[in-house]
Design a protein around this nucleic acid. Structure first.
Lengths: 346, 346
DNA sequence: TTTTACACTACAATCGATTGCACGATCTGG
DNA sequence: CCAGATCGTGCAATCGATTGTAGTGTAAAA
């Protein structure tokens, strides 16, 4: 009838094992640590192991972290978990960290630059061993570079141009250029660009790559910038509508959307207005999301290798944690493209 | 030229603040804790606050966790982060936890039941305040119920039938029934079911609901079970192929796929074989993934409210943490459905 | 046999924040 | 003017694992 918790079979500490064996906790600690067990007699190691498993000893990584100064966690900052494009990245990070028994601690900023600073602080107060920022906006540069002075911190996914920070990215510039080339090679001379936010590295790079390539080919590129908004479907719809409103009398023959979500949004607006893809207007998208090949029409899309980028980011963090002196090299993944049916030969 | 780290401006502890003010660390601790600051003179509180911000004090939640016994983290176990369907759930969980400055610690099991047990252990050794298991398979029942004795633990997303554990789920049974009804109402009398793994709550429930409803209407339901495989696109393709192989001479008029991924897989196989949807064969899918409405044809799909389920799971965990005595009630979300063009009236 | 070496283990400090208890000072009421 | 209440602070223990140092004992070397 008592309300006291029943004897907690778990919550076994080193001391419990130690006293059950009549030895000191330090001996138990060493016996259980493979890297130190040579300091303890073999029979003692065996006894300790036995007792530990009998008592269901699990250890307390918080206490361990306290003493050693390493928590075995890496903070991961993302803009928005609900954006399907980020999930594979986290998967890759988790996969990489798991090789060292480490865990990611994920914080969302809701793509609000102001929240990023407090997220960094929050993670640091939790003593993460490193931080992977996969949701940077340009204005966060200082905060991040500042934090990097004291803690291993890398930029992933969303690049920060001209930053001293280690970055693990996909080559969005080359990706934008690749998208342009794909259209130009098919005879398109007038193309529109549905851009993502202009303070996010990926979109700026895609824009530059696209523009450069159009410039070389002397093709006309209609620029539809997106300021402050989030690069989701609704924004694709909005920009498509702007395109129709402002260039309805002389539409471009093709559109490059900065991501799949926006492409799909644009596609639906085009359809509503009786424009079919690719017959009336061609589309090249970006990210190659899981179901993009089943869209009508299957979309040609630049591939974003999320898992690989995530895995690389995890690997670099691990490296930076174990070798803080190394100015670890970043990584940049070249783009590839999945060509489907949404961009036709003129 | 030295290799010593430069003076670490960060890493300020309570003691630093204390000595800079000539007071004891305990006073600083109390001054900084809103719930205890009334124990300290107002002027002292002001001084402490000032000094803290000047020195850039951030606190050490690891040390705090050690002393108070609560880490401010919730362990989240998922099968596979790369599965796009789980991301919104995590988003919801993170959102809920954020209201209390808590963070999720995410572990993947790769949908391997054996890994789940060690994941639980890992999380417990990190002293998470609660565990949300969103990746349970039936055989994990014991491990989970055992762990729940010592720690707040809830089941989310993937139900565990007949378990005493608190569960936060979507009503997959009703969802399966809803899918069936949708087809039956449209005159389909011979329908096939492309099932997900038979040891995952969601799919078992969807199956039961679907079968029951077909039974009531005396419709013929061709059962295509999926054993041991993961419910992804490839499995949808496989099952569709099985359907064609075994019933090619007398195909059903409709198919219920246990999720969007499998539906899309099946769709592509049907298309390869010259069957068009919905003219030759109707499809109802499940989850209502982000781009499923742009598939050709736009798929009718039972809606999985991932964010809401996640948020509820987070809320319940928080409740369980603050009121461990309460046998917290779970939650079950009724299904809704997005009707599009993939299921036609016969 | 004496000395040097080595293998084990115990002791105690430590990581940083928190909190029960105690102490001194100021204040109130009788 | 004194007893007792109240307020503000300091002291020291604590959470559990880790690790440098010291100490015991035994074995090998001289």
């Amino acid at each position: 009838m008592s309300h006291r918790r029943s004897t907690v079979i778990s919550d076994v500490t080193l001391k419990h094992i130690a006293s059950s064996l009549g030895v000191n906790a330090s001996t138990v600690s060493r016996a259980l640590d493979p890297a130190k067990s040579h300091l303890v007699s073999e029979e003692m190691v065996a006894q300790v192991r036995q007792a530990a498993s009998e008592l269901g000893y699990r250890g307390d990584r918080v206490a361990g972290a306290m003493r050693r100064g390493a928590t075995g966690t890496v903070g991961v900052i993302v803009a928005d978990l609900a954006n399907p494009f980020i999930a594979p990245v986290i998967h890759g990070i988790a996969q990489s960290l798991a090789t060292e028994q480490m865990l990611p601690m994920i914080v969302e900023t809701n793509d609000d630059p102001a929240e990023l600073a407090s997220s960094v602080d929050h993670l640091l107060s939790r003593r993460v061993d490193a931080v992977i920022c996969a949701g940077a906006r340009f204005e966060n540069r200082e905060v991040l570079e500042q934090a990097a002075v004291h803690t291993p911190l890398i930029i992933a996914v969303r690049g920060l141009p001209n930053s001293v920070l280690t970055q693990v990215l996909h080559d969005d510039r080359a990706g934008g250029a690749m998208a342009a080339r794909h259209l130009l090679e098919r005879g398109h001379k007038r193309v529109a660009e549905l851009r993502g936010p202009d303070d996010v590295g990926n979109f700026v790079a895609r824009h530059q790559g696209f523009q450069d390539e159009c410039g070389i080919a002397a093709a006309e590129a209609i620029d539809l910038p997106s300021v402050g908004a989030r690069p989701i479907r609704a924004e694709g719809e909005r920009l498509a509508q702007v395109l129709l409103d402002e260039h309805g009398d002389n539409l471009p023959t093709a559109v490059f959307a900065h991501n799949d979500l926006m492409a799909v949004g644009a596609l639906s607006v085009f359809r509503e207005h009786g424009l079919s893809c690719p017959d009336d207007i061609s589309i090249v998208a970006y990210n190659n999301s899981p179901m993009i090949d089943q869209v009508d029409p299957p979309l040609t899309s630049v591939v974003y290798p999320g898992i690989e980028v995530g895995r690389a980011a995890g690997d670099v963090s691990l490296h930076l944690i174990s070798q803080p002196e190394d100015r670890a090299a970043g990584a940049i993944f070249p783009p590839t493209m999945c060509i489907r049916d949404s961009a036709k030969q003129l």
